[in-house]
Design a protein around this nucleic acid. Sequence first.
DNA 1: TTTATCAATGCAACAATGTTGCATTTAAAT
DNA 2: ATTTAAATGCAACATTGTTGCATTGATAAA
Lengths: 128, 128
Amino acid sequence: MQIRNTKSKDEVLRILSQSDYALSHTEIENQCAVAFDRVTLYRILTGFEQQGVVHKIVGNDGKARYATCKNECTDHEHHKDNHLHFGCNDCGKMYCFDNKTIELKMPKGFKAQQFNYAVFGTCPDCNQ
Amino acid sequence: MQIRNTKSKDEVLRILSQSDYALSHTEIENQCAVAFDRVTLYRILTGFEQQGVVHKIVGNDGKARYATCKNECTDHEHHKDNHLHFGCNDCGKMYCFDNKTIELKMPKGFKAQQFNYAVFGTCPDCNQ
DNA sequence: TTTATCAATGCAACAATGTTGCATTTAAAT
DNA sequence: ATTTAAATGCAACATTGTTGCATTGATAAA
Ligand SMILES: [Mn+2]
Ligand SMILES: [Mn+2]
Ligand SMILES: [Zn+2]
Ligand SMILES: [Zn+2]
């Protein structure tokens, strides 16, 4: 036994799966039908992240946002989520560009483990 | 009259200029010879950022770090600081790779204004 | 089904980061 | 020297995230 299914985790995963952009803790809480503690959400998301179910993107505001991982993961290698993100300065939405992968060779001696590629500006909806 | 020179600002700029990596608020405070309020530092750094004197990088920890801008800026166009950064998970240092510029065409409708390109892992010093 | 185990949760308490309002200080133009 | 408003100090606050510990509950085993 390692990981257990719970209503809270189901609900969080449901919300993230149905969203077409990355969600912050607050945004997830607001969309939750089931009610549970704030700390629980932190632990759920951290857990999901470690399992490779979701990935985290940090915006210019320093706030974490989470999105489900679309790319395939093997048991031996979780995908790296080294793709581009776009945060709208107007509406606050953080988009995942899953197909816009960024492959960079690190300078000698630097070993890459996580990626946080984000651009900020205005999204199409806010560009009228 | 727009911007005034002060000891605080001189000190912050001195510290940032002499550092070979980006510094967080706390790191700057610790290196400060002159003493001034925490809020003042926030305002100084925000001001520098708007003037294009420094740029901000946000790490996986959600904390802002600042580094002087090495590339040239014109009055009409501040440089974009669209270069790669590397944050060490061990020692916490955030490096600027000023020559590793990332030029990406945004998807239609998205207008880019700020950039936050960061990779995390272990730096050469911590790779023993 | 019942029992045992420990992952998951709730709650309180806390730390860190960042923001705002307002009175005071002070750089620098006049 | 006088004037102006940029810069600062201080208090108060909001938000985000973390930790410890008792309790609950999912699930494997009896
Ligand atoms: Mn993504
Ligand atoms: Mn940089
Ligand atoms: Zn938008
Ligand atoms: Zn290091």
